[in-house]
Computed example of a mutant assay.
Amino acid sequence: MTSTLSGPARATNSGPQPLFEGQAGTGRQILVYIFVLVPFAALIAAIPFAWGWGLTWTDVILGVAFFAFTGLGVTIGYHRHFTHGSFKAKPWLRVLLAVAGSMAVQGPPIIWVADHRRHHAFSDRDGDPHSPWLFGTGPAALAKGFWHAHMGWLFERDLTNKQRFAPDLLADRNVVAVNRLFPLLTAATLLLPALLGGLISWSLWGAVTAFFWAGLVRVAVLHHVTWSTNSICHMIGERPFKSRDKAANFWPLAILSFGEAWHNLHHADPTCARHGVKRGQIDISARVIWAFEKFGWAWNVRWPTPARLARIAAKAE
């Protein structure tokens, strides 16, 4: 059985258009280094920082709140809605999801979607932007592959062709507007926790600790949770469904990734709105989509009905 892309992801991968649209300039590469390495440095410094100056409940609550808002912006917005068309949404909800995803500091929505659609079009083959299997299967090759899949690919200069992989988003004025606001939203995701921390504690130090924990450290943790889906979930785990690649379920990441770590079903059926389809597989993103549907904010949700799962199982035989 081979996994098939449908909806927006399938429609954008046809035709003779080139895979890349050029190379990133030096300025963009410098920004990538800053937004990847600075939060990571904050994560490394987190323990001695906590020991030396303390961590407050305000920092924890703000960190969890911003982690959930921005993380769900990626999993529900960037991934399930914009990339795969797992459900349709009201215009205001589309904008909110694009804003929330942008505040995860993982790139503007159109670039993120183009990269991810390319990932599915060439999953674990040449052309996949972040497969861990591109260098071989020996220990050294897998170590290199893990680094590449986890974060090394971010530093490459080749730019995915947005016209080929995301023409629908390029034609959406609202998404294009949010895309242009990415620098401002990046600043907001770091400064808003500081502002709230300062106001709640009514102190400059409260603003500083909130900036560190709910800003930098929260961004770094979310980065590595998302990147682990690219690396770990294509290397180890269970594969109850057959797909054309090595996508696997890695249960320890299920909660932190809001259900994205149930990665095997996703690659077997990319447009499905729920990834954790078996009993006990908690999928927070799917539950939020369910709530959106109940409120009438989302519709045409592609749920994993028994008939849909039976078709996937039949293809795997």
Rank of each mutant, 00 (worst) to 15 (best):
G54S: 10
G27L: 13
G85W: 01
W57K: 09
R80D: 05
G63P: 04
F66P: 02
T58S: 10
P48H: 09
F87Y: 12
P91C: 02
T70I: 04
V36L: 12
A50D: 03
I61F: 11
T26L: 13
D59T: 01
Y33P: 00
Y78T: 07
I30Q: 08
T83D: 07
G54V: 09
W57P: 10
W57S: 12
W53F: 14
A42S: 12
I61M: 13
L43I: 06
G54D: 11
G27F: 11
A50S: 13
I44Q: 03
G63E: 01
G52Y: 11
T58P: 05
A50M: 14
V74C: 11
T58H: 07
W51F: 14
H79T: 02
V32K: 05
T58Y: 10
I34Y: 08
I44Y: 07
A45M: 13
Y33Q: 11
P91G: 00
V64L: 15
I30S: 07
I44T: 09
A89M: 08
T75W: 02
L62Y: 08
F67I: 04
F87G: 00
Y78G: 07
Y78I: 10
I34D: 02
L31C: 09
L31V: 14
F69V: 15
Q29D: 12
I30R: 12
H81T: 10
A45R: 04
H81V: 01
I30M: 14
V32D: 03
Y33V: 12
L43P: 01
Y78C: 05
I47A: 15
D59Y: 06
P39C: 06
F82K: 06
I61G: 10
K88I: 01
G27Y: 01
P39F: 04
L43E: 03
K90W: 04
G73F: 04
F87T: 01
A50V: 13
H79S: 04
K88S: 13
V64I: 15
W51I: 14
A42K: 07
H81I: 05
D59G: 09
G52L: 15
Y33E: 07
T75Y: 03
W92G: 02
A46S: 15
R80G: 05
W57V: 13
F40E: 01
G85R: 03
G27E: 11
A41Q: 05
T83Y: 03
G85E: 10
I61C: 11
F49W: 14
G25V: 01
Y78K: 05
I76V: 15
L55K: 02
G77A: 03
F35P: 02
G27Q: 10
T75M: 06
L31A: 14
V74Y: 03
A45L: 14
L31Q: 12
G71R: 03
W57G: 15
W92K: 10
L43F: 13
P48L: 05
W53P: 00
Y33G: 14
Y78N: 11
V32M: 10
Q29N: 14
F35L: 11
V60L: 15
I76S: 07
F87N: 01
P39H: 02
R80E: 03
V64Y: 08
F49I: 12
Y33S: 13
A89R: 03
V36P: 00
Q29Y: 00
I30D: 02
F35G: 05
A41G: 15
R80T: 06
L37F: 09
K88W: 03
F35A: 06
H79M: 03
A41Y: 08
G73K: 06
D59E: 15
K88E: 15
D59F: 00
I44C: 12
L72C: 08
W57A: 10
I30E: 02
Q29V: 12
W51V: 15
